[in-house]
Design a protein around this nucleic acid. Structure first.
Lengths: 138, 138
DNA sequence: GGCTAATCTTGACTCGTTCAAGAAAGGGCG
DNA sequence: CGCCCTTTCTTGAACGAGTCAAGATTAGCC
């Protein structure tokens, strides 16, 4: 995981103010891929015990909007975040234990974005979730 | 849209008791594809003004479990339901107005279920959501 | 160092959904 | 056709994730 200064640099590159909560959140997401908001809050409080949940929510929104972090929102479970962005990978989610794994796109680099017929929509992202049972759960 | 008796028959085929709320919910989902739970409640109350929201939630769960209805849960919006099941189609969702459209699977009949590497997971469903802007929103 | 806008703290609040207890109704049986 | 048992429905409270809002704090520019 990159050191703190690198996270600060990432923030600056996106024209975001460098604040302690943001650095801590960014670092937490890098350290815990697919962590839920709650898990991020816990992780952040290890180094920054006084952060409010609101600051974490705000930071996650800002970072998501800036593209530094990606939000995953599987049906029926709270939002989760990951640091791999822009590399067109998808997710494998276990119905029984909720574990999430990364899979590279089966189709290739970006053809994923092509629907059979776009109906006039201007598509900017294809989200693919494979639902199943993980090796540990059967 | 099929008449009431057909919905009753569908329920019986799935070994479900035929109750007024269930028939009304099934009919509402057929009549309003991609309707949110709230919209389903409203639609059901047109013919059955006294149903409780809970009965609708229960019915939707039961029907979903029986496979008579499919639940769609896009990030950041309440659950929606549709009656097309088992035909491997996907969804196009507008980021700005939330409208949902159906698209047939681009890949074909079922190869959708094949990830590039399943990591030992036993995959039973591939959920694909194309995010973008609909023709009416730009 | 001081100023101003952005960000954070605190705490209340909303929304979609679930839980729980008791009343009502479906449907197999006599 | 009517009884009984179980499932389903009503009512109303509760929950969790996330948002809103007012005021205190802080980053970054001069």
């Amino acid at each position: 995981m990159p050191p703190t200064e690198d996270f600060a640099a990432l923030l600056r590159e996106s024209d975001l103010r460098v604040t302690r909560p943001r650095v801590a959140v960014l670092s937490a997401v890098h350290a815990h891929p697919h962590a839920s908001t709650d898990a991020v809050i816990d992780a952040v409080r290890v180094t920054l015990p006084e952060v409010s949940h609101q600051a974490v929510y705000d930071s996650l929104h800002t970072l998501t909007a800036a593209g530094l972090v990606r939000r995953i929102q599987p049906s029926g479970s709270p939002a989760r975040y990951e640091s791999r962005t822009g590399d067109n990978h998808h997710h494998l989610i276990c119905r029984s234990c909720g574990s999430i794994a990364d899979v590279d796109c089966a189709v290739g680099t970006a053809p994923c974005l092509t629907a059979s017929d776009d109906l006039g929509y201007d598509i900017d992202e294809a989200e693919v979730i494979y639902w199943g049972t993980c090796p540990g759960c059967h």
